[in-house]
Design a protein around this nucleic acid. Structure first.
Lengths: 238, 238
DNA sequence: GAGGCGATGACGGCAACCTGACGATCACCC
DNA sequence: GGGTGATCGTCAGGTTGCCGTCATCGCCTC
């Protein structure tokens, strides 16, 4: 699983960004200043780095310059407090791969990080290790899902949706939000999500009146149970 | 966790709104006038602001205008005592992101704030703590309530009502007041509340003649016991 | 026992949700 | 290049569950 290092002193930023990265299938390390950041960078060998320009202790630009001089080619997205053009130019000259001005949308940042990873042929979520939630196992390379021994091959969209919910097991998402997080749309019809949920259910739910895998929380959205819940529910219906 | 600043001089409004925000997984700061509000705004760097148009000291509109002129782009929901169209227009012109006329439903306000936060991609609820009063636990993401191990899924209105009473455990509220604070109505029939109390009781009270969770104070209203009372009452009936 | 307050059960409108089907698009293969 | 099958977004119709309203009944108070 791709590993992303986030170096920023604002806890609000790091926690939010880290949550988004994890939800989209990456691992996130966090460092709050330049010194801790450099250590994590050298020891953790991250697949990408999100780096604040302004840091306590030393400048993020200095850190980046030093790493590049050492021959490190890890993709880096710079964050700057001010959207000044100068910073941007300097940043890219020093060797940043992308640049985002605060305040930024975490979703946009995640998209840019994912793009950088793809450029290096690392797929977010597309891990050699399968993703497991209790009795449910997702194999990204085969695009198959296995629940209680029964294996099913899934269409791409189906797999993406199920994988997203599996990475966020236990959390409820509304159709609109799923449309944004899985489809990447800010428009469009909620029914799109509804129908895909249905197609997934058809493949895994023996009894449509009592969904086990994908439950709907009326008025709120859809939800995939935690590992414990899935195991319990499965044992109950067996 | 997203941080929301509420600026209003009516203590009834701020306490209710703050409680709702917290229940939905956000942090809430409160200020009672324009001066304190501006200080909190600048120092606290909130993720969103709920702002009353009429404030002691200075107009909320002036405050908003000043912040916008300073380049501040924090999402703002305006509250106005009168639902006049003029206010609405002026408010949006000055740079408010949304607008709500008093009396409003706290639930609707929370929904609108959450929508604004999503626009900035700060996710509420991701780390929302369940609300607990002794043996009673409320899970906002699942819309469930658990009392003494027995879990029940609640309808949205039921959940809102129970959550409100749970946040104010030990306090008695009349039907009319609940209608205002939970439904956000200043009109309508008290029986609406009565029926919802009944539906909640049906789900949690084994013996209708001896209510444990929701007691009625004749001539005054309804009341949810404190943590100690609930624990004691539950032990007695077991 | 009359009056008042709350409890109870039922009903209907309405919105949320489910379901099956259709057509467009695209990759693949003969 | 035409055929074939899989995938995916859209839509109309059906179903379910929520919720506000009402009429009736029971119980307490005076």
């Amino acid at each position: 699983m791709p590993n992303v290092l986030v170096i920023d002193d604002e806890e609000l930023v790091t926690s939010s960004v880290a949550a988004y990265l994890v939800a989209d299938g990456m691992r996130a390390d966090v460092a709050a200043d330049a010194r801790a950041g450099e250590r994590s960078w050298r020891e953790g060998r991250p697949d990408a780095v999100v780096l604040d320009v302004r840091l306590p202790g030393a400048s993020g630009l200095d850190l980046l310059r030093r790493m590049r001089l050492d021959g490190d080619r890890t993709p880096v997205v710079l964050l700057s407090g001010l959207g000044s053009v100068d910073d941007r130019i300097v940043g890219l000259e020093v060797g940043a791969d992308d640049y985002l001005a605060k305040p930024f949308s975490p979703r946009e940042l995640v998209l840019r990080v994912a793009a950088l990873l793809r450029r290096g042929d690392i797929q977010p979520g597309a891990d050699s290790h399968p993703l497991t939630v209790g009795p449910l196992t997702l194999d990204p390379t085969l695009r198959t899902a296995t629940l209680a021994g029964r294996s099913q091959t899934l269409a791409p969209r189906e797999f993406d949706l199920l994988a997203f919910l599996a990475r966020n097991a236990g959390v409820t998402f509304g159709s609109r939000e799923l449309l944004r997080r899985v489809w990447g749309w800010d428009f469009g019809d909620d029914s799109t999500v509804v129908v895909h949920v249905r197609r997934l259910r058809r493949k895994f739910e023996p009894d449509p009146s009592a969904p086990v895998l994908l439950t709907t929380v009326r008025g709120t959205g859809y939800r995939l149970g935690t590992a414990d819940e899935l195991a319990a529910a499965l044992a109950a219906t067996a």
